[in-house]
Design a protein around this nucleic acid. Structure first.
Lengths: 344, 344
DNA sequence: TTGAAAGCGGTACCAC
DNA sequence: GTGGTACCGCTTTCAA
């Protein structure tokens, strides 16, 4: 049978109260008794049961992490960075993939609450914030990561998506692209990226007049491929593509190739996230890098400080993206543009 | 404050024992009382505290999953498939990345034990099995996945690695390759793959006489690149590379390109795992596919049945790999071979 | 059919 | 300093 605090107490000829004190290093205990108890604990290989102490109001040292999809490189990298930091503090992560389904989000939220997790980190869609608001009201520590919720008072570590879009567009404009196709799923952060994107165009006295529609479905390779093919086959095909995540960008590259064109010679492609796969595609992807490690570390620190009860005021930490230039972008050599320039 | 079983009992004018019975659907309760209690539970939005019931010996409905690295596509895909199946049964996963460090493995094992997880799924290195053996002795449900431990009596869901290596070699041999470089980390499963690989050579009256050494470090892009470059620059360069995971294969492809050669025209490359990235590289990777979804599902089912106390006898389930042919492999056009053939 | 009460393994307050 | 003990929230006999 498992060894309990009673076994230790009996073996050390003290009360369980005393043992508890040496475990938690609280109250005052004599040096000798302390040593004695410690010794017995080691000898019996005693492992305090966390369920029991959790019941008495102490923490469970576990944090719930809700993400859309663990198999998506961006989220698995993010989860890993959060996990590492969590372990540094002796915390574990319960990870749940929600597939962007509100139903699952709510289900996992409720389930993990029953398991008395100390707090939640949300990287998921959460278009429906009712349950999240409830948690906040009940004083359950909740922090958001990689997902800006501007009109909601909650601790957040996010990326400056506006700047991300701006960066992507600026880079492309500098390379002489004026007709740029955008591929994105309709979520808040992408709307921001699009705003930043347009802002950059505007500053160059360019206008975003292209046909545009959000993809439906998730941000994966296929939709990126599909949408790019559509743009390329449509009238007024773009000379560059800005995809709002690396997976979509991969799809874009594949579509370009299938049309018998080349990246970046004929079409430039910019991605977003800078995950492992950006370095793996051919050509290597120019992409807007999210500081994934940094984000993971920051939310974890944030949630920990909330759990500890420090920092009662809400805050939003915005990290800045940076452009990583690889080989999927190049000067625009498109004839139309050349002609236009020559006609000036 | 949180609503407890007492609140429900009071509100429904019954004892907590009765409430407990309706929650768990045990014992015999009158229809009316049952309905009444159910109603009150709903009304108060009562959520039973799992810590408390876990303390009483019931399950925590959480499973510990130890993997080497959550950011590695193979493991994140595996984790995802296990997670999905777990959720079907109402279980959660606590995921820990061990980085192949025995130290971390043992640390997480102990930590999760204190948290009373119902069982462990191990996909990690575990060269040191002492702690695992202890768990088994203590009757803690433990299952191994994606990692064969042949001389150890423990429930396992694994791949037929021997066959995987055999498949890869056969494919390459069929394409006319005789001088094949192998890249692998020195772990059990790779030793098996190598065995299968050699077996196929042998059956074709070929011999594996190449210089060979296991990589040191982890199975990631860099070592694959490094080792391939080494082979290519060495004497008697191979016409094909068999890399024991997709990441290594990516590295191989990159190295080939850097040497100014082409895949598959000059060098063929076969990977292992068939993760997302195999479809993303250029050229798309021919690779030995592991049935990741299937494996995840099977271990989960296995551990559940262990938790439930069914199936006391140990078993090893071996899943079969299959070769997915894409464009990183082609007929050997190497001069040497041609000459050889002509000299016949 | 229902309920009183004894735990499960700890924590923490309060005497001694 | 150390120990007695009342919980924490729920499960489970065992009576009633």
């Amino acid at each position: 049978m498992k060894v309990t605090i009673y076994d230790v107490a009996k073996e050390a000829n003290v009360s369980i109260a005393t043992v508890s004190k040496v475990i938690n290093n609280t109250g005052r205990i004599g040096e000798k008794t302390k040593r004695k108890v410690l010794e017995v604990m080691k000898q019996l290989d005693y492992q305090p049961n966390m369920m029991a102490s959790a019941l008495m109001g102490k923490q469970t040292k576990t944090i719930g992490l809700l993400i859309p999809d663990l198999a998506n490189p961006f989220f698995s990298e993010l989860a890993r960075s959060i996990e590492d930091r969590a372990h540094e503090f002796g915390y574990n992560l319960v990870i749940c993939s929600t597939d962007y389904q509100t139903e699952k989000e709510n289900k996992y939220l409720a389930l993990l609450k029953r398991k008395s997790v100390d707090g939640f980190i949300l990287a998921s869609g959460f278009e429906d914030l009712n349950k999240v608001e409830e948690l906040v009201k009940e004083d359950v520590p909740v922090a958001i990561v990689a997902r800006d919720l501007p009109m909601f008072s909650i601790n957040t570590v996010a990326l400056d998506d506006f700047m991300g879009g701006y960066l992507a567009a600026s880079h492309l404009i500098e390379l002489g692209h004026q007709n740029i196709g955008v591929i994105a799923r309709d979520v808040w952060s992408n709307r921001e990226r699009l705003r930043g994107f347009k802002q950059a165009l505007e500053e160059s006295n360019l206008e975003f007049t292209r046909e545009f529609e959000y993809i439906n479905g998730i941000s994966h390779v296929e939709p990126g491929k599909f949408m790019t093919a559509k743009y390329l086959k449509g009238k007024n095909p773009p000379t560059a593509i800005f995809a709002c995540n690396d997976l979509l960008a991969i799809g874009a590259i594949q579509a370009v190739k299938e049309q018998g064109m080349r990246v970046p010679d004929d079409i430039s492609v910019v991605g977003f996230d800078n995950t492992l796969i950006a370095t793996i595609v051919e050509p290597p992807l120019t992409t807007v890098a999210q500081p994934i490690q940094h984000m993971g570390r920051e939310v974890l620190d944030l949630i920990i400080s909330m759990i500890k009860g420090e920092k009662k005021e809400k805050m939003r930490l915005t990290l800045l993206p940076s452009l990583v230039t690889r080989n999927s972008t190049a000067k625009n050599r498109n004839k139309d543009l050349k002609e236009k320039l020559e006609n000036l």
